[in-house]
Amino acid sequence: MRGARQGDAVSSRHGPEAARLRARLAEARHVLAAGVALDAAAVFAAVRDEAAALGLAAERADALLGLGDCALESGEPARARDLFAAVEHLLAAEPLPRRVPALRGRATAHLLAGELRYCAHLLERTVRELNASGLHAPDALLLLHTASIAPYMDMGAHVRAAHAAQLALALAPQVNDPALVAGMYRGVARTLIAEGRTAEADASLAKAQELCAQLHLRTDLAHCHWMRGYVLAQNGELDPAEGELRTARGILTAKRAALFTVQVEVELADVLRRRGRTGEAEALLRPLLSSSALGAERGAVHAGGAHRLLGLIAEERADTESAEEHYCAALSLLERTGAAGDLADLCRLLGDLLRRTGRVEAALDAYRTGLGHRAAPGTTTLGPAPTAPAP
């Protein structure tokens, strides 16, 4: 196979077949947006096989891209990563903007697997290549800058996240795809939260939510409710936060978006615990960890969050041994991800626990670990880059 350019020539010889497959791809996209990923995946797989038999590379690439998106929604980041890589290989001879959706999808798969640094690296590299190419591709750049916000925020790189959000906002007037713009508004909201601009974050989410409702983008709509619940929880408004998170959970459960559902459940459990409903929170969390719904390869940041919450619940019951076990399990998960803010908070909790039980040296080690992760290369004014904390 010589890539999608040869496929375009084949498409001209199979005009009616190509048009029919494009219509089926549009149908599958509609099912993915409004229905269940598993149903959409069946259509994408059928189109992929038929396009391969006809030698229609462009249609085959779009079918594989759809299958990758279905795998992301179904909570299979490793499979999604492989599918997106196959799309990139198939489109290797195409201009970079044509490959950006697959590159962004692969980066998102790494994010969901907890590989935050590699996700950010992949997106940054693609932005540099796209800017160097001189191609006018506002849709592709908007997609990349929006996707960069989440890993930057999770790594504690708030300045970079805010810069990506500014670039995305500047590109929005040049973009005609409302789904891309909706995703941008949702991403921008997270940077506004970090800056304490809660009212502006809520307004940005309202714009995203309106667009998602108009376009029947059910998963994206769930993410809007999820983010609004997060905003409210950060602001201490726990009753409406619980309502928003339960709405998000209901939509995601109906769509069988397994990984996103359990991530929302961790954040819902946090709200329940803070409202004094510890038993309900624990009932949500324990099945997530015992069934491997979350772990090192699937939602590692939220898996660490689940252990953190169970550690807090154990501390409230004066079960110091269990609390320490959960904090250490969370630390093991989060250290692999580079989620700086979560790591710093967890090291503080573990250090305080160790100090209260008389293990001062161990407590100091925990505090040093947290500080070491906060002091990354490029964050200090003087001297060489900070060294990583000892194991």
Rank of each mutant, 00 (worst) to 15 (best):
T191M: 01
A206Y: 11
N176W: 11
V181P: 02
Q209F: 07
A165N: 04
A203G: 10
A222H: 01
D139V: 00
A213D: 14
E210I: 00
Q209N: 09
T146E: 05
P151A: 08
E210V: 02
D139C: 09
A194L: 11
V181Y: 08
V188E: 10
A199W: 08
L221N: 02
L215H: 09
A203N: 14
L144H: 11
V188L: 09
T191G: 04
Y185H: 15
A164N: 06
L141G: 02
N176Q: 15
P173I: 02
A162G: 08
V159P: 00
A140K: 12
A199P: 04
L192E: 03
V175H: 09
L217W: 08
A172H: 04
G196I: 04
D139H: 13
A164E: 10
L144N: 02
A162R: 13
E200N: 11
R186G: 14
N176H: 14
D202Q: 07
R218T: 10
G187C: 03
L211T: 09
G187T: 05
P178W: 08
A161G: 07
A199Q: 15
N176T: 15
V188R: 04
R218N: 11
A172R: 14
R218S: 11
S148P: 05
L221Y: 11
S148I: 00
H163Y: 14
D154R: 15
L141N: 06
V159G: 11
H145G: 06
L171C: 10
L217H: 05
G183V: 07
L221I: 10
A170P: 03
L211Y: 09
A165T: 02
P178I: 10
L142Y: 10
C212R: 15
L171R: 13
R197I: 00
A150S: 11
D154T: 05
M184K: 04
L215G: 03
A189S: 14
L167E: 15
L192W: 01
R160W: 02
S204P: 07
Y152L: 12
R190G: 02
M155C: 01
L142N: 13
L167A: 12
A147F: 06
I193M: 11
D202E: 14
A213M: 14
Q214E: 14
Q214G: 06
P173Q: 04
G183P: 02
T219A: 15
A150Y: 10
L141S: 11
V181C: 10
Q174I: 08
V159A: 05
H163M: 13
T146D: 07
H145T: 03
G156P: 05
A194Y: 09
S148E: 09
V188A: 04
A208V: 01
A179N: 00
M184A: 08
P178R: 13
K207S: 08
Q174K: 15
Q166W: 12
A203I: 02
A164G: 09
D202S: 09
A201Y: 03
P151E: 12
D139P: 03
K207Y: 12
M153L: 13
A140E: 12
P178V: 08
A172M: 14
R186Y: 06
D220S: 07
A168G: 01
R190F: 01
V159I: 05
P151S: 06
L144D: 01
L167M: 14
M184E: 12
L169H: 08
E200L: 13
H158N: 10
L205T: 05
A165M: 05
Q174P: 05
E200W: 06
D177M: 05
A164Y: 07
A201I: 06
H145C: 07
A201S: 11
M155H: 00
A203E: 15
P178K: 13
H216A: 11
A203H: 12
